[in-house]
């Protein structure tokens, strides 16, 4: 009995209990409010999740479009962030030049940016652009910190032992920052998904999750709106879980023997 209830299993059971509590709160809130347009019932939401989403071709098209745009925005952000993080890590002058731009991008009000971009571009491009603008400074800060965090001793060792630069970058520095980067990638894409959906709602992007949510709101289809919201949350969690598993590949050189 004691062996079955390991600490990990107990924590898992507690997490499942927390989700059950959320579900109970939802049911209680529904019966307290008794207004389908405020809080939809669990049954109607579940039915809508199946009929309007999983069993619907247009849902999968919308989901695919939103997810693809999110990945595109993340990819662009990552490339830009990496391109600027390296000079920041190597040169204090470069860092002094680049940092004001990063602060500017970080403090831009997201909704205002969407509205501006809608004027300059179109409802398909604007959400990608705004998601890129939000993710880019965050990823840049993280990459700069990861590069700065490379052990000084290792850097000195590379210099003393005259390890060629290309080998140092690809065999030493990049793998050294990989665990941190992989672990955060899931969180970044998950955040990107949230921002993308918000931007699509505002831009009323056709054939997108955000667009579907906007239509649901307009026609007061609350169960459908709730179902789409839950699916968006689950998608974010799934992305986090996938990258958490991918990052385990680095455990062979980061985890001591016996670590779970």
């Amino acid at each position: 009995m004691k062996k079955f209830f390991t600490e990990r299993r107990i924590n898992f059971i507690i997490s499942v209990f927390a989700i059950v509590c959320m579900w109970i709160v939802w049911i209680i809130a529904y019966y307290c409010v008794r207004n389908e347009y405020v809080i939809p019932s669990f049954q109607d939401t579940f039915v809508s999740m199946w009929n309007d989403c999983f069993a619907s071709g247009s849902f999968w098209l919308a989901f695919g479009n939103t997810f693809w745009r999110t990945l595109l925005a993340f990819f662009i952000s990552f490339l830009l962030a990496a391109a600027l993080a390296v000079p920041c890590a190597l040169s204090k002058s470069a860092k002094a030049f680049i940092m004001p731009f990063m602060i500017f991008f970080r403090t831009l009000p997201t909704l205002a940016v969407i509205l501006i971009l809608l004027l300059w571009t179109n409802p398909r491009i604007a959400p990608v652009a705004v998601t890129t603008l939000v993710l880019f400074p965050m990823i840049h800060a993280r990459l700069t910190a990861a590069i700065d965090g490379i052990d000084t001793g290792v850097r000195q060792m590379v210099k003393v032992y005259k390890v060629p630069s290309k080998r140092a970058i690809f065999a030493i520095y990049l793998p050294m920052i990989t665990p941190n980067v992989l672990l955060q990638t899931g969180a970044d894409i998950s955040l990107g998904l949230k921002i993308m959906i918000s931007a699509e709602v505002l831009a009323n992007t056709a054939k997108s999750l955000g667009g579907m949510m906007q239509v649901s709101r307009l026609y007061l289809m609350m169960p459908r709106l709730a179902a789409l919201t839950i699916i968006a949350v689950l998608a974010g969690l799934a992305v986090n879980a996938v990258f958490s598993q991918i990052s385990r590949v680095t455990r062979k050189w980061t985890a001591k023997e016996g670590d779970s």
Binding site: V154, I172, T250
Partner: peptide
């Protein structure tokens, strides 16, 4: 060096 400074991923 005072600490071994081995490359952790190799």
């Amino acid at each position: 060096f005072q600490s071994p400074t081995l490359v952790p991923n190799l």
